[in-house]
C-alpha cells in the first residue's frame, strides 16, 4: 500500500511517465514505417493486377463505345468495321486520340473531331486492344526526337507528298476520301499514323522507313509548323490555284477599283 500510495499520488500530479512520449513516438514510427513497407510491397506485388484493372477498364469502355461496330472481343463485323485484333495500342491511341473514333457517321472515311475520351480512358482502351494480340506500340517520347530535318523533307516528298502535299496541306483521294492536312498534328500521332496506316494510308513499317527516318519526317513536319512561310501568307499552301484566285480577286480587283477612281468624273 505504501508503494501504491505514492504511485497514485504521482498519477494525480503528472499523468504520464517521461518515457511514455518516447514509447508513443516509437510506436507511431513503427506503425507508419511498417504500414509504408507493407503498402509498398503490396503495390509492387500487384502491378499485373493494376494492368489487369486497366485492361478490364478498357474492356468496359470498349464494350460500351466500340463494340457496336467492332464486335465483342474486337473481332470486327463483316462489312461494317474491321477486326482490331493485332492493330496494337498505337492504332487505338491514334484513332481515338485524334477523335476519329468513335465515328460520328459512316462515310468515305473517319473525320477528325474533338476527342471524346480522357487520356486515361484512351490509355485503357489502348491497353485492352493491345492485350488481345501483339501490335505496334505507342512510341516513346525519345523515339520522336532528334530527326534530321532535311532527310525528313526528302523522305516526305518521296513517300508522303503525293497525297498530303509537299507542305502537308492535304489532298484529295478517290471516292470522297482524302489525305488530311498535317499542320498541327502532334509528333506522336504522326508517328503512329506511319506505323499503323489509318484509313487509306499505307503502313510504313520499320523496314520500309526506319524509326530514325520516321523521327526525321516528324522533325520536318514540326519544322513546317514552327516556321511560317518565308514569303509571307501561305494561302493554305494549296499551290497555283489559290495564287490564281488571289491575283484575280485581290490584285486585279484592287487595280480595277483604282481605274474606276482614276476615270471618275469630278462632281
Amino acid at each position: 500500500m505504501a508503494t501504491s500510495v505514492p504511485t497514485s499520488s504521482r498519477r494525480k500530479t503528472g499523468r504520464r511517465s517521461p518515457l511514455a512520449s518516447v514509447a508513443l513516438l516509437l510506436i507511431g514510427l513503427l506503425a507508419t514505417g511498417g504500414a509504408y513497407a507493407a503498402f509498398t510491397t503490396s503495390a509492387s506485388a500487384s502491378t499485373p493486377a493494376s494492368e489487369q484493372a486497366q485492361v478490364s477498364e478498357g474492356k468496359k469502355l470498349f464494350e460500351a463505345n466500340c463494340a457496336t461496330c467492332h464486335g465483342l472481343g474486337a473481332v470486327g463485323t463483316a462489312g461494317v468495321a474491321p477486326s482490331l485484333v493485332g492493330v496494337g495500342p498505337a492504332a487505338v491511341d491514334f484513332q481515338v486520340g485524334t477523335g476519329r473514333m468513335p465515328m460520328a457517321a459512316s462515310g468515305p472515311q473517319a473525320e477528325q473531331k474533338p476527342t471524346q475520351f480522357t487520356n486515361t480512358q484512351i490509355a485503357a482502351l489502348a491497353a485492352y486492344v493491345g492485350s488481345l494480340a501483339p501490335g505496334p506500340a505507342i512510341p516513346s517520347a525519345d523515339s520522336l526526337k532528334g530527326g534530321n530535318v532535311s532527310t525528313g523533307a526528302e523522305l516526305f516528298r518521296v513517300n508522303c507528298a503525293m497525297c498530303h502535299n509537299v507542305a502537308g496541306a492535304g489532298g484529295a483521294l478517290t471516292e470522297g476520301k482524302y489525305a488530311p492536312p498535317l499542320t498541327g498534328v502532334t509528333a506522336k500521332h504522326v508517328y503512329e499514323a506511319m506505323v499503323t496506316g489509318p484509313q487509306n494510308m499505307p503502313v510504313f513499317n520499320n523496314l520500309n522507313i526506319t524509326p530514325k527516318d520516321k523521327a526525321a519526317i516528324v522533325a520536318y513536319l514540326q519544322y513546317l509548323d514552327s516556321h511560317p512561310s518565308p514569303g509571307g501568307l501561305d494561302l493554305g499552301n494549296l499551290g497555283p490555284v489559290s495564287e490564281g484566285l488571289f491575283v484575280w480577286i485581290f490584285a486585279l480587283g484592287a487595280i480595277v477599283v483604282v481605274t474606276i477612281w482614276l476615270t471618275a468624273k469630278p462632281n
Binding site: 507528298a161 503525293m162 502535299n165 501568307l233 499551290g239 497555283p240 491575283v247
Partner: peptide
C-alpha cells in the same frame, strides 16, 4: 509580293521523276 508567298520552291524541293505533290497545278 511583300506579303503573300508565291511558288514556294523551298517546299517543292528538287525535281525527281518519282514523287509528285498533291495539289499540283499549273499557273492559272
Amino acid at each position: 509580293a511583300a506579303t503573300v508567298t508565291i511558288n514556294p520552291i523551298w517546299d517543292y524541293g528538287p525535281y525527281d521523276p518519282s514523287p509528285i505533290s498533291a495539289g499540283t497545278q499549273p499557273d492559272w
